[in-house]
Design a protein around this nucleic acid. Structure first.
Lengths: 233, 233
DNA sequence: TAATAAAGCTAATCCAAATTAGCCAAATTA
DNA sequence: TAATTTGGCTAATTTGGATTAGCTTTATTA
């Protein structure tokens, strides 16, 4: 029953995609893990998405766990690379700090929106986050990674910038840490809402806008300007 | 090889605990599910915790899924019952509203602390929340339950109270919804942090305190009093 | 161009964990 | 007190899904 000369099922799909499969596996696996969690994804599912059969996966990864591990490794790499993604421009913190010395309400809104929409829409980021949310309790390391990426790092980076802005008189407070929390916590909360129900995104963006305007009113600039702002309203 | 007259493994542990087992199964299952997620918990684990063998579980529940379903049902029941738990006293919203008309900073802190510590420490609540966090992406219903309980309901209940407080002149804002978000989002964020790493609880409580004081400074009372507060500092 | 490696496939195999079968003793009830 | 129910046990059985075996073809390399 061997089909000689002719390949039976047309499995000569190797026209240059060769080294690609390994990455496609990670990509599809990440998608599935982020939707259903590690334990509920079958290697056959992953393979099927990639367009191969389950046993072929093992030519690329030792086993299912190795796929997961590779994803985590990739994630850590990307998290490091994108450390600057929270910034208003692509440059370093110093440059950002200069911008913030004369920041307007508009720009503050842009900052918040960038932060929010980047986290929400960047495809890798979103899937990583959802996967971590599901898997965090299996492995303390994953919980730590989640917190670092979505709580501690944003708070500390934003806090640093806000500290500079306070020093420059752009913002006013005697507790930068709490001010930063007031800025970021609503963003974080809206993010977790949208992850769970993407249909609420439009609403969330509106709320975000209102939040930042209010934040600006509460903490923004000198008291004279606050008063001016109030009159305008 | 039958041991007549004498029970072999001492399994006569039925001295009154009889009807209890069914509940103990749910309890232990909830604990395990909240720590490891449904798929990573074996019925043998649950049984072992209860002090019986796996097959005996099936005298009480049709199968593993039925245990999970019973937990969810129990959860929904409790969520309904405890709807009032967010209140400052055990009474209804009207009573709360009256209290809030003359609320002090102390009382506001108490309110926030109660909310936070109740969510964090109430044993059922905590385990339900952690389980929902893990399982939310398997079933849209669970995601909805999570959001209702930890996002929408708190925001709407607090929002209602804050609305009354604004009407009474205790708080000041032209956007109650955002003010409520500013009050609750940090609490929510601290909660998710502590769920992931209970060792950070002490720190979180301190932050919570500072948050509410700052909130009170930002939104509290008439402008004259705000100014007075500022001078005190 | 012959040999080897890479990457796919089908058809087992393996295994852990859920579930069922069937027995037993305490408790309850008629 | 006899019959039935309840809730436990041990010992299978089942099963879904990961992994391995072993073959084939294309690509690469010596």
């Amino acid at each position: 029953m061997k089909c000689k000369g002719n390949n039976y099922n047309g499995y000569s799909n190797r026209k240059g995609y060769t080294m690609d499969t390994k990455h496609r596996i990670l990509d599809e696996a990440l998608t599935l893990f982020s939707e259903k969690g590690y334990a509920n994804v079958y290697v056959a599912d992953i393979a099927s998405r990639v367009g191969i059969k389950a046993p072929s996966l093992y030519k690329h990864y030792r086993n299912k766990q190795a796929i997961f591990d590779a994803i985590i490794e990739e994630m850590n790499k990307r998290f490091l690379e994108q450390a600057g993604a929270l910034q208003v421009n692509g440059a370093d913190a110093k440059a950002d700090a200069d911008i913030y010395k004369t920041i307007s309400e508009e720009q503050l809104i842009t900052l918040g929106n960038n932060l929010f929409l980047y986290f929400l829409h960047d495809d890798y980021t979103r899937r990583f986050r959802k996967m971590l949310t599901i898997e965090q309790f299996h492995d303390k390391k994953l919980a730590d990674a989640y917190m670092k990426q979505y709580a501690d790092d944003p708070l500390s980076y934003q806090g640093m910038l806000f500290g500079l802005m306070v020093a420059a008189g752009v913002l006013q407070t005697d507790n930068v840490e709490i001010m930063t929390l007031h800025f970021y916590a609503p963003i974080y909360m809206l993010l977790t809402i949208c992850d769970r129900d993407p249909s609420r995104e439009k609403d969330a963006v509106k709320t975000l806008d209102a939040h930042i305007k209010q934040f600006n009113k509460l903490y923004g600039r000198s008291e004279e300007q606050i008063k001016k702002n109030r009159k305008k309203k």
